[in-house]
Design a protein around this nucleic acid. Structure first.
Lengths: 191, 191
DNA sequence: GTCTATAGGATGATAGAC
DNA sequence: GTCTATCATCCTATAGAC
């Protein structure tokens, strides 16, 4: 039985609206209306619209950072690490679907320290991923192609998983993971 | 020597601003300032902000539709068609980079017929792509994995190419195409 | 904790002078 | 074709009653 605080309710409602229309197209009145209250009342629970955005985004960004740290600490092969990263993205997509939209589309509307924190975490995440791919190429486990193209291909798919996951939805997470790992590792051409 | 009309200049400037901050975060005053003029003067060249968005998006959407029609009309194998589609996306990314951002991020702010036109074209595009993948699986050319996962993996990478292309930039289009085709067709694992 | 009222400023768009 | 001036509306946020 989930006992959501009023603040958590507001966060969930805003996350859903931000995902549908984007941060700037959603007004405090829109959020209040969806909550069945007046805009002014929102300010009893939150400091302002910015807090909604930064809480949402930084929460997800921290989940990615922690997940990646765990992968990096694991003493497994580069390809196994990539499998773990795919798992991580699927798990976050399932658990933080709404916040992911804000992270992907509205991060540039973060302000000051929040923006800097986000950019730092993203930078570190990509840099870790890149080094895994390079290690894989160096040890002969991964084909010697442009590492940046490999990084981009996998990451852009994983990042937009949330758009598609609930549209097509209801696909078992294990099936999804299995097929996605297969596509990136073995490719789509029948052998 | 390009002889851009004033209207085309406005379109280019807005496209750039929309890409950086999103449609709703860019005001007519922002566009005017970037053009070195006053907001009111913009209305001598365009009917309003919506026209900027719909012109940008529908232009790119039509380029995709025509490209896909050409691929479908071609009597080649499913895998060759996928290669052609990758080429198409790279070409459009290079030539319509700014409009692509609007198409990806701000299509939901289109209104009435423009929104319906866009959704119709997107629907048809995905449906054509899906049938190519299914044909490939049926004739044994493509591995028998969930077609939706294959479609999504390739399409989400191609769709966000524009973000990454100019950030990392300056990668030769032919090298990019070769590596991307290789990754999707053969996968990244060394054989 | 929610409301009404409102401040203070930004927004898209128009009217009319030059 | 560009300007200044302005309208009507929307926005985030606050003050204070209940």
């Amino acid at each position: 039985m989930k006992m959501a605080t009023r603040k958590e309710e507001i966060m969930e409602v805003s996350a859903r609206l931000f995902k549908e229309k984007g941060y700037n197209a959603v007004s405090m009145r829109d959020i209040a209306k969806a909550m069945g209250m007046k805009a002014a009342s929102l300010y009893n629970h939150i400091s302002g619209k910015q807090e909604l955005l930064s809480t949402l985004i930084l929460q997800v960004a921290r989940a990615f950072t922690q997940g990646m740290d765990a992968v990096m600490a694991d003493a497994i092969s580069p390809v196994s690490k990539i499998e773990k990263i795919i798992e991580l993205h699927i798990e976050i997509t399932i658990n933080h679907s709404e916040g992911l939209a804000a992270l992907n589309n509205d991060w540039m509307h973060l302000e000051n320290d929040d923006l800097a924190d986000f950019l730092g975490m993203r930078e570190r995440y990509e840099s870790n991923f890149r080094s895994i791919i390079k290690d894989g190429i160096d040890c002969g486990e991964i084909s010697p192609r442009h590492p940046e193209v490999i990084l981009f291909s996998i990451l852009s798919t994983l990042r937009t998983l949330y758009v598609w996951y609930q549209k097509r939805g209801k696909l078992d997470a294990n099936v999804l993971k299995k097929d996605m790992v297969a596509i990136f590792l073995q490719g789509i051409v029948a052998k």
